[in-house]
Design a binder for these strands. Structure first.
Lengths: 109, 109
DNA sequence: TCCATATGAAACCAAAAGGTATCTCTTATA
DNA sequence: TATAAGAGATACCTTTTGGTTTCATATGGA
């Protein structure tokens, strides 16, 4: 099971966000990702592991290759989490609106 | 200026996510937050600093008190970031749909 | 079969992060 | 005007993280 903090932790690093942006254009093997960075294969692999743990990418095998692609699940999790707080702002604004309206009606008394 | 990775980094820790959930119910001073955790004041303060750096909370002064509240900006940033990838999925699904349709029309030839 | 290539994993290191103890500063209030 | 309460900052310690080097495994092709 993916923890929400694992997803956010995976997103909390510039290199990993860049990798996601690469994968948004095309699926890639680790080798292809390595070509885009000044970093060791093993270093990139660690980032990929964290992205996978966060549910943001998935891997399919093709012979001796491992092809990495974006995983909708992780993004959906983030989207839903942030939507909870959107609701929070809506409620707060409504409460403020109601308060103002009731004060206005008090003025009329 | 707030970097998106600072926002995600701030969200990548269970304690900080809990603090946000507390602040969603009511604004709090650090002292009030400390009462909810088995942690030093200085420890909580560090978390608050990171949340502020990520644009997720803001602080207003009231006498000797500092009152912390949620900051819409940070949440908006996350929401917009994830929306970019929503668009990505939509495009991908449309491409798939177009592919299927063109193959179907080929069959008719 | 032999070798080049794509991969995974472990050991190791320096830097960053989570946390505490301690000190200083400011502001209510007795 | 003392003094207690709320806050911030620094030094310090331990754990985690970002990164490399190195070794082992699997697969495609000459």
């Amino acid at each position: 099971m993916v923890q929400i903090t694992d997803t956010f932790k995976a997103l909390g690093d510039p290199t990993r966000v860049q990798i996601l942006s690469l994968l948004a254009h095309e699926d890639m093997t680790i080798g292809q990702v390595v070509d885009q960075f000044d970093m060791t294969r093993a270093g990139v692999k660690k980032h990929m592991n964290l992205l996978q743990k966060g549910g943001l990418i998935r891997v399919r095998a093709n012979g001796r290759e491992r092809i990495n692609s974006l995983n909708p699940e992780g993004f959906k999790t983030v989207s839903e989490w942030v939507r909870y707080y959107d609701q929070f702002w809506d409620d707060k604004l409504n409460a403020l609106k109601n308060l103002i309206e009731s004060e206005t009606s008090n003025d009329k008394q």
